[in-house]
Design a binder for these strands. Sequence first.
DNA 1: TCCGGAACCAATTTTCTATTGGTTATCGCG
DNA 2: CGCGATAACCAATAGAAAATTGGTTCCGGA
Lengths: 226, 226
Amino acid sequence: MTSNGQNAALVQLRAFLAAADLPFESRLPPERELSERLGVPRPALRKALAVLEQEGQIWRHVGKGTFVGSRPLDTHADIAAIARRTDPAEVMRTRLLLEPEVAALAAIVASPAHVAEMRTCIQRSRSATSWRQYENWDNRLHRAIAEATRNGLLLALLDTLNAVRRAVTWGRLRPDRASPPPDHHSFAEHDAIVAAIEDRDADRARTLMREHLEHVERNLLRPRLS
Amino acid sequence: MTSNGQNAALVQLRAFLAAADLPFESRLPPERELSERLGVPRPALRKALAVLEQEGQIWRHVGKGTFVGSRPLDTHADIAAIARRTDPAEVMRTRLLLEPEVAALAAIVASPAHVAEMRTCIQRSRSATSWRQYENWDNRLHRAIAEATRNGLLLALLDTLNAVRRAVTWGRLRPDRASPPPDHHSFAEHDAIVAAIEDRDADRARTLMREHLEHVERNLLRPRLS
DNA sequence: TCCGGAACCAATTTTCTATTGGTTATCGCG
DNA sequence: CGCGATAACCAATAGAAAATTGGTTCCGGA
């Protein structure tokens, strides 16, 4: 029992791949054509292909074909598509996971100019005359903290997160009549976070940011009381 | 000059919109059909539509149609654009910020099926016969951990991060001759991380993931010694 | 001069067809 | 019976063709 038809198929397939020396991500012939070219029945060829796929050398997909290399994970960073498959709670949980760490990192590497930018945002948010204005400056503040990390990639990811958040929250906007009360919890919390960053106290910045977002989350669930 | 044909068109269009009471983002009839229904010539209707568009009540696009509400801002995060403005070090710092928290969250909410998936990836990575195969299963493992958080948005962000990482690292691939040695540091570290997740020990999972990535980072800077 | 009508243009969606990996049924051979 | 090859069929995908739609141009008539 040195070789049956199926093992022969695997050997021939390996030989074919070695001989072809295909570049990465390139497509190899469809199964029907390949089975004919190698003189191997399709079921046997499929088993051989399954082995190679298990080994991670190729990947296949119905309607697309068989490709060399590893299956490309979805690179479609389409905001709308993401927003369709998520919800406000998930957005909040993601912010809660990300932003405390961002604040901690900002505390380590932020420059005085960054801190000044944060202070400006806080001041503008305090003098906002509508919820829309307030939210605008609140967003700018959180982005300023992200900028302070001096990590463009991280910033891009947070921008994506924010775009999704806007897309998800779309439609259920606060009535633009009133404005945030002077004792709104966020004001003091924003101050404390920026102070921690200025003090280079990463742990405190992280904790305060987490608590701040938890308060925001609570207000989201029970929005209309002020 | 109380009303000419064009003003009449605007009035009729407003009446139509009020009567229809269309939900947000919904499409209204194409111009040709609408002009016939309202008994208004198309040029006049178009001017009326232009007014409404100027007012921000509707938006239009060739081939798509006319819609109620405000034009959705097309924010498709372009992987290539991000990759151009970053570098491997930044990618690593971002992973170091994100993935420990992801591991901690996974430890809290992962299901046995998720853990089994991780174990499979580890096993496959151990039996890899080339660095490419190893990296493939390493990626799948890290993604399995992200999936275990049951947070689709977080998963999408990590996929974006990975796409950027690939784009940045592109070209400088390890030679595919050798294979990872059996005592490669990642094997034991992967095992420990998944064990911590299975034990629902979030703190341990976070710490182990951070240490693991720090080792990976060190190996990236001084790559060819094994 | 100005507006309505029609034809035309370009971007987009929709529809149809061909392709492709995956599955199932059937037959042949040992 | 068991195993595998052949063929037919299925579902997902890509690609081309056709239809749709907002925008533009041109011309005739009031």
